[in-house]
Design a protein around this nucleic acid. Structure first.
Lengths: 113, 113
DNA sequence: CGATCATATCGATGACTGTCGATACCGCCG
DNA sequence: CGGCGGTATCGACAGTCATCGATATGATCG
């Protein structure tokens, strides 16, 4: 009867609740436009970018870019700072680090060779 | 006229093409069920799991679990290995490492404090 | 105050996606 | 060979999402 089929999990796996959290964060980042937005903001010398610049970087409506920024902000990836007429966004490094941690953690990446 | 508003990007940002690639990978992972699937498989002693186990771990139809496995396989996150009647999936560590790398890279995470 | 400009919000629309039941495919066992 | 059981695929449906044009909000300038 060899091994029926199963190699049971050892309880190390991610809980359903944590999976929901991580999925929410990933969903915010799983879009080409939003990835480029984050990348653009992160690559500025000041560590922040104003919406006027971001609008011009894409072939999209101002409404659409604003929507993407809102999604990233709601997910905790970006911080908003309105100064005068202009709005500035900056990256929250903890959010990105959280993603890096999940996929560097032995529980996931540590599939021992 | 102070600083009109802009802090221009320095060309370090992610290209549109790369953003598409990364987004495709993230989209495959940005789902609670799929995250748990990957986690379950990665946490097995053998580094692989058969579909019969995975089906029982969720309150979902066998068709739905199979669909999620296909998405992960197509995205390059999982390897499939059909042995006899049973199908075994294992995690491709490179795929997860790729995600970890993107979000550890100075271009994104290196927003200096 | 009124005009103007930057940004956010709203409502609509077309595309995509997670889920299901049903069914097809394919090794296996008797 | 015929039936059985595990897995993948198909078609449908409901919910979500990216995008847009139009409009609201709110700060600045003349």
């Amino acid at each position: 009867m060899d091994d029926s089929c199963c190699t049971p999990a050892d309880g190390t796996a991610m809980t359903a609740g944590r999976a929901e959290e991580v999925a929410a964060l990933l969903k915010a980042l799983a879009d080409p436009v939003r990835l480029r937005l984050v990348s653009l903001i992160a690559s500025t010398a000041a560590g922040e970018a104003c919406v006027c610049d971001l609008n011009e970087a894409f072939d999209l409506t101002q409404a659409t870019v604003s929507h993407h920024l809102k999604v990233l902000h709601t997910a905790g990836v970006l911080d908003r700072d309105k100064r005068g007429v202009w709005a500035y966004y900056r990256v929250r490094p903890e959010a990105l680090a959280a993603v890096a941690d999940v996929f560097s953690s032995p529980a996931l990446a540590g599939v021992r060779a």
